[in-house]
């Protein structure tokens, strides 16, 4: 049997409300999603907002960067870094963070949620 994954798209914010080369936090019910506008690379990323290290709702206030080609986010609390593309912890020791697809249409930014 074939299952077709249906993606629900959450309209998060307008492009101009996002922080250039930084993150904002998007509320989705009781969930918090960090949305990053990596202007330098002209890329959008979304991840869970909670840093798994000390379980702080803080990744959206973190700092963007790259290691080699890999885009990453550093948590403001203890600078644990996570890959924005895979969610994997790059500073070791922490579990990976959840990532979400992002699309931009008509000036609006959407985050893809698994059904």
């Amino acid at each position: 049997m074939e299952t077709i994954a249906t993606t629900e798209w959450l309209a998060a914010c307008r492009v101009e409300d996002a922080v250039k080369n930084g993150g904002v936090c998007v509320r989705h019910g009781n969930e918090q999603i960090a949305l990053f506008y990596f202007t330098r690379r002209n890329e959008w990323y979304a991840t869970q907002n909670e840093c798994p290290h000390r379980r702080q709702m803080a990744l959206s206030r973190g700092m963007l960067g790259s290691v080699g080609e890999e885009p990453k986010i550093a948590c403001p609390f203890h600078k644990k870094t996570f890959s924005l593309s895979s969610g994997e912890c790059l500073s070791g020791g922490e579990c990976a963070i959840k990532t979400y697809p992002v699309k931009v249409e008509n000036g609006l930014v959407y985050i893809g949620l698994d059904d």
């Binding site: 700092m63 960067g65 290691v67």
Partner: peptide, 16 residues
Amino acid sequence: VLDALGQGDGCEVCKP
């Protein structure tokens, strides 16, 4: 500064 003197997209060390 990054455009003129650096490479890549920066990080939590060079930014601050």
